[in-house]
Amino acid sequence: MIDKRVKDLASAVAGIKDGATLLFAGFGQVGEPVELIQALLEAGVRDLTVAANNSGTGEVGLAKLIRERRVRKLICSFPRTSDSHCFEAAFAEGAIELELVPQGTLSERMRAAGAGIAGFYVRTGAETKLAEGKETRMIDGKLHVLERPLRGDVALIKALKGDRWGNLVYRKSARNFNPVMAMAADLVIAQVKEIVELGALDPECVVTPGIFVDRVVEVGR
């Protein structure tokens, strides 16, 4: 029998080690697995590398993890948002390393990791500072940049509903990075508002099939 449900948040994040590379879904706060990140903070892990589109909002979730100096390096497309003071303070202090990645490249690097693709050439970033030090190649008369996959040891994701096989559905624009991050990590942990019976999710509407998911925890929101 397959049962990926775990009883609480502490069990959901059990086994994540210091120094791990983590993928955090979300676009701003929408789709961000705030409860899982809080559990990770409480578990005491540190020296983390985190890939996320932004750098956290206010003093919750990723922002709090950065405030507590648990994040050594952030791989990110847009760290400076309306309420990113925790990251900005750490950055100004030199307490966090930033790898700035164009948003589509960030997403595609994770897709490549999930799809068994060792690298890809893309126009995005060609002839810019963000391509410095990267291999380039002229293809069809245009300069392309070689980008490598980005794989996480762990992905923390958030969905609306899930079942015990790990099938997931999302809500509106809270889907964002969740499905691609679910493909790109060795251990994928999903927080869901509600766990439903197997068969209750319309198979035509499942966005993340359970094969990508290892643990599901219900958080009620």
Binding site: F78, P79, R80, F87, L98, L100, P102
Partner: peptide, 14 residues
């Protein structure tokens, strides 16, 4: 000020 690229390079190239 930390830089932020977001989707700008993707849009400009694509």
């Amino acid at each position: 000020t930390p830089p932020g690229v977001g989707g700008a390079m993707d849009l400009a190239a694509g």
